[in-house]
Write a protein that binds this DNA or RNA. Structure first.
Lengths: 338, 338
DNA sequence: CAATGTTCTGGGAGCGCTTCCAGAACCGCG
DNA sequence: CGCGGTTCTGGAAGCGCTCCCAGAACATTG
């Protein structure tokens, strides 16, 4: 059942059919110089007639280049995959990869134990480099990988100061934009549902929002941390309503949390945006389909995925002069919820 | 910049440090029989002290086993990745993979030209098997792969009769359930927004719905095909309203189309579910968050992803007695839209 | 025509691993 | 003590490819 119906032809056979040596066949196939037109043609024909395609494994073993990179989700895979964020990153990575001839290996740390295996797998020469999406900023993996010499680029600012290049959205400015927007909309009691304290995205959005509030000379009307999920956002909103019933503007650090919050607001009889204006973060599809459509801070996730990929490929090819890290701009997309 | 800081130790070095031959070291590492306790311990120590981890490439070359499988998205990658369907499949695949020690390589046919490369890559021995998610039923890829001897399992019934095992949801029964439900809710003029004619999912849901209608002795009050997107669903709904203003029940073959349809209904002043009951398909997150929450036919997507993965692994390991194909049950999840 | 380059070619040594095979070491037994 | 049997070991031959190197073939000069 597992048998490969036809044995794959090898380079030796190609060489034999073409009447040249294996070396010459190899050179012809790889388009190198110093191959006579005659030999090249013979090899080309042999390849075609045999339906030869090189064994990439063997090639990799010889060249120490695998032409594939890993996308590492350093989170429990089942959780992170539920997040549309991930799909968008993947799209960006895919875009960045296209035309490079590289393949993508998807890896997820499913549990503690697998974390070790993962590092081992990555260092065992199966990939040329790794993209690490590590939502929790204190992840040891990036450092571990980088110190083993594997080219690594991070998506998302790491919390610890590690010497690994990263690409992130300008979360801080995004938070600032949200604050400014709510102020501009005439809101007087502005609260925030912040992300987790152990994720850079959570921290930076919150600090940006704080900066925006300070700049507008406003005092925060409540700060509650949640976990970026809809349920978490709902719980946080309940908490906020209880503690600060006067709240009339909320910045949720993710669209998912914003949607959860809107649900709670609706149940509490608050109209959106008349009674309470809501701003989310991500500008995901969810924001567009929400009722009412959600004002949200757009972060260019696909772009980020693309950026880390290009950056990694450049690093693998030892292109010099790479910026160590990049923040991509965020922008506010006003809709009807504010 | 690309240098691997420390050269990876090889099996030879382990053997030398342990004072045994390479063969013995290999046997010890792979836990084979016929290794003396003494030798085994020496090797174990050497491995630990050197920080050795086997080069999987070399191992694969020797064993002709790569311990990785491909997930092939035989659609334009950027499109398919936007679909939450895909994320759920991936989650299922991931679950199915866990504990098997296999890795996942993600492949997408980005364009016509890449389609060929893709097939070549897959057959070039880089993976032990392939999962093919091919939404358009007339995709030539599955057949091509299977005939090259590579173990392949499909997600989604292929349109052409090919000799490749597949796993799909019982779309037909799902459509039937939707019809029966709308009838039971007392709807008299039931229409459907069907999926594309060239996808098995579209065809099967429609035929099931037709069967359900016939069983209830009802005549369809309109059938419009759309493309599974929200915009498509909206356009279809407009068409339906124009042609059949009396419609009071709609089965949309995807949640996305259902949401689009609901938008149009709302704009047309129809109340949901009082004036028009709506049933979707997928039971996605969208169905839960829609306003009003959408009655939908649940298909166990994660389960399907898991099933194809287990099936493929079994096939790779040449486990006999595999059912050729499987339909997983669908069920109706009633919510407030009907 | 010898001398000097410039293409082009095949042999062969790897890459790091598994695995076959033949033989060494050890076991208990008559 | 010799003998068949079991357990263990190292040598060596691959897996399919790349790439170095020495030399062959050919072209170009004085």
């Amino acid at each position: 059942m597992v048998e490969q119906s036809r044995e794959m032809p090898t380079l030796d056979e190609v060489a034999r059919v073409a009447g040249v040596s294996r070396s010459t066949a190899s050179r012809a196939i790889n388009g190198q110089v110093y191959v006579s037109a005659k030999a090249r043609e013979a090899v080309t024909n042999a390849v075609a007639s045999l339906g030869y395609s090189p064994n990439l494994l063997a090639r990799s073993l010889a060249t120490k280049r695998t032409n594939s990179i890993a996308l590492v989700l350093s989170e429990r895979g089942d959780t992170v995959l539920a997040d549309p964020f991930f799909a968008r990153v993947l799209r960006g990575v895919h875009a960045g990869l296209s035309g490079s001839g590289m393949q993508l290996v998807l890896l997820m740390a499913q549990d503690e134990q697998a974390q070790g295996e993962l590092g081992q797998y990555l260092c065992a020469g199966h990939v040329d480099g790794a993209l690490v999406v590590s939502l929790h900023g204190d992840d040891p993996l990036p450092d571990q990988l980088a110190s083993s010499g594997l080219p690594v680029v991070l998506l998302g600012r790491p919390l610890a100061k590690v010497d690994v290049p990263y690409v992130d959205a300008d979360n801080s400015t995004g938070g600032e934009l949200a604050a400014a927007h709510l102020v501009e909309r005439g809101r007087r009691h502005i609260a925030t549902i912040a992300g987790p304290r152990d994720m850079a995205a959570g921290i930076d959005r919150l600090s940006g929002w704080r900066r925006g509030m300070t700049a507008a000379k406003r005092r925060p009307a409540g700060v509650v941390h949640a976990d970026f999920t809809a349920a978490g956002g709902a719980a946080a909103m309940r908490e906020l309503l209880a503690a600060h019933p006067e709240v009339d503007g909320v910045f949720a650090a993710s669209d998912l949390m914003a949607v959860g919050a809107m649900q709670v607001l609706r149940e509490a009889g608050r109209r959106i945006p008349q009674d309470v204006a809501v701003v989310g973060f991500d500008d995901s599809e969810l924001a567009e389909t929400a009722v009412p459509p959600l004002t949200s801070v757009r972060q260019p996730i696909e772009e980020m995925g693309r950026a880390i990929t290009l950056r990694l490929i450049a690093q693998i090819n030892a292109v010099a002069d790479q910026p160590s890290s990049v923040l991509l701009p965020t922008e506010l997309v006003p809709r009807e919820s504010s």
